[in-house]
């Protein structure tokens, strides 16, 4: 395989996925380097969420190959769990565990998956909460926090597993406008620290400022890819132009 070079942390080759008769992914081929920040945009239903959910196998692709950090995603459960513990994911709906405190939300997986002692896990969790700016909320339950705070806790929860890759599935779409900035700021700080990130978003400002590359999805395939400058100033594809004209 020619695309499997050493610094490509994610390699997807001709990934195809069907939901019943509907083909959600029609052969996606992408290679992503370590420390790269990739933004995926596209209209709803274009398959961009399905694509990043395939990367940690929340969805199972039926054809093609996905290789994450040198491990090929297959039906082998051990591979899947290993990859999931190295790929963090942040969801549109936060998906915090409502019956656990913020601190417990963050320490649960490090304690049971990474087998860290409680004290170490809690120490680390407090550091992460400081990093996302809400250490004072540690003992509260998710229901007591605002949407922006919840999403920042969700980011801290993923970071607690010390992932090599972070996936963001429309992280700001469920937020009130005044809370979007606080989440984007955390994501920008994360990008600058050198995290490999794939971000599905409609925040064009974020894409322009942070992304190394932008992918445009439509009908389950990549229509256009390029640097943000190329993408926002001189898109080559008509479909891309139409989409950008509608949302900018």
């Amino acid at each position: 395989m020619t695309t499997e070079t050493d610094n490509n942390i994610i390699v997807c080759q001709d990934v195809k996925k069907w939901f019943g008769d509907f083909q959600a992914l029609k052969g996606v081929t992408i290679s992503i380097k370590e420390r790269e920040v990739v933004v995926v945009i596209g209209p709803s239903g274009s398959g961009k969420s399905t694509f990043i959910r395939c990367i940690n196998r929340l969805e199972v692709h039926q054809e093609g190959r996905i290789i994450v950090d040198g491990i090929e995603l297959s039906s082998d459960v051990r591979n899947v769990e290993k990859i999931r513990s190295e790929v963090g994911m942040v969801f549109q709906q936060f998906n915090l565990f409502p019956h656990l405190t913020v601190l417990q939300n963050i320490t649960l997986a490090p304690m049971w998956v990474r087998k860290k002692p409680r004290a170490e896990a809690e120490d680390n969790a407090m550091k992460l909460l400081e990093r996302v700016g809400i250490p004072e909320q540690a003992e509260k339950f998710p229901g007591q926090l605002s949407g922006g705070q919840q999403q920042r806790v969700a980011i801290a929860r993923s970071l607690a597993m010390e992932p090599k890759i972070m996936l963001f599935d429309e992280p700001t779409s469920a937020l009130d406008p005044e809370m979007i900035k606080e989440v984007l700021d955390v994501m920008k700080e994360l990008a600058r620290s050198g995290m490999t990130m794939i971000v599905v978003t409609h925040e064009m400002g974020f894409a322009r400022e942070v992304a190394d590359r932008v992918f445009f999805f439509d009908y389950g395939a990549i229509v256009e890819e390029g640097t943000p400058e190329h993408f926002f100033t001189s898109p080559s594809h008509d479909r891309t132009k139409l989409f950008l004209s509608q949302i900018l």
């Binding site: 929340l58 769990e81 999931r84 790929v87 963090g88 969801f91 998906n95 049971w112 998956v113 993923s158």
Partner: peptide
């Protein structure tokens, strides 16, 4: 999904 994404069995 969130639990699985964290690598929990």
């Amino acid at each position: 999904e969130a639990s699985k994404a964290l690598g929990m069995t």
